[in-house]
Design a protein around this nucleic acid. Structure first.
Lengths: 128, 128
DNA sequence: CGGTTAGTGCTAGTTTTTTAGCATGGTGCT
DNA sequence: AGCACCATGCTAAAAAACTAGCACTAACCG
């Protein structure tokens, strides 16, 4: 799908997609409220319509208002985003990425670190 | 700096910044070659000039050609990118991010997994 | 030297993106 | 009913992004 290529969305389009992925779904008003220093409400709606025409999002009618939802499921979009991040900033290296991730995720609790360690142990057992 | 906000770059600007971060630095010709289905060489140069005017990149003259370099160091830019990724796709959860990272990084060797485990151990010791 | 290649500075035209307003419909309240 | 508020569909204009070409310089090679 279109999100497979990281450079198909314009500035505002991408900003809106990010809001939708962060929230999972949203009304036009919620998107408008989530954008820092936003344009007018009708400008946001117009962009949502553009995104829908391009096939990036769809809407469901609910109580006389539209709920906008990304077409590419979050699970898939984030995998694509992670791959792009690795390639762009980390030379494909998961180790460097994890190091940075630990660095920006300050104050991880022992429990959280345990869970991270368990993930790696699981990966080890699965032979990957 | 400008990369602190993830939505300040247009589609092509961001594409070019990604190339520069991936390579660390590049000539206009290298940027041109690194872009899939690129516009003309002169169009790429024009965009580089725009990026420089906006302060995102700078250039150094080397052997009669320009080497373009991001103004925000890679270390800083990637931290910002990681934070944005966590927030957009992982609800701020490093655990989910690591799980996906392990998922997309197929065929990690035991050595690589050891190194990842060591990173977590180190984080544990540093109390963070 | 002249021709070719590779580079830069600059510009303007074209295309795309972005924006906001108008018209309309639905709902709730007085 | 009328009004206010909230929503949508649609449009066109403004702004931004994008593009490629021209003029020029420098270096290299025959």
């Amino acid at each position: 799908m279109v999100l497979k290529n990281q450079h198909k969305l314009s500035r505002r389009e991408r900003q809106i997609m990010d809001v939708l992925y962060r929230r999972g779904k949203a009304t036009a008003a919620e998107v408008h409220a989530a954008i820092p220093d936003p344009p007018s409400y009708s400008a946001v709606r117009a962009m949502l319509r553009v995104l829908e025409e391009k096939g990036h999002i769809r809407h469901e009618a609910q109580d006389l208002r539209y709920i906008f939802i990304p077409v590419v499921p979050r699970e898939k979009a984030r995998r694509s985003a992670v791959r792009h991040l690795l390639e762009t900033f980390f030379e494909g290296s998961p180790e460097q990425a994890v190091a940075t991730l630990l660095d920006v995720s300050r104050d991880l609790s022992p429990e959280e670190l345990d869970r991270l360690a368990a993930l790696i142990e699981k990966a080890r057992k699965e032979g990957r």
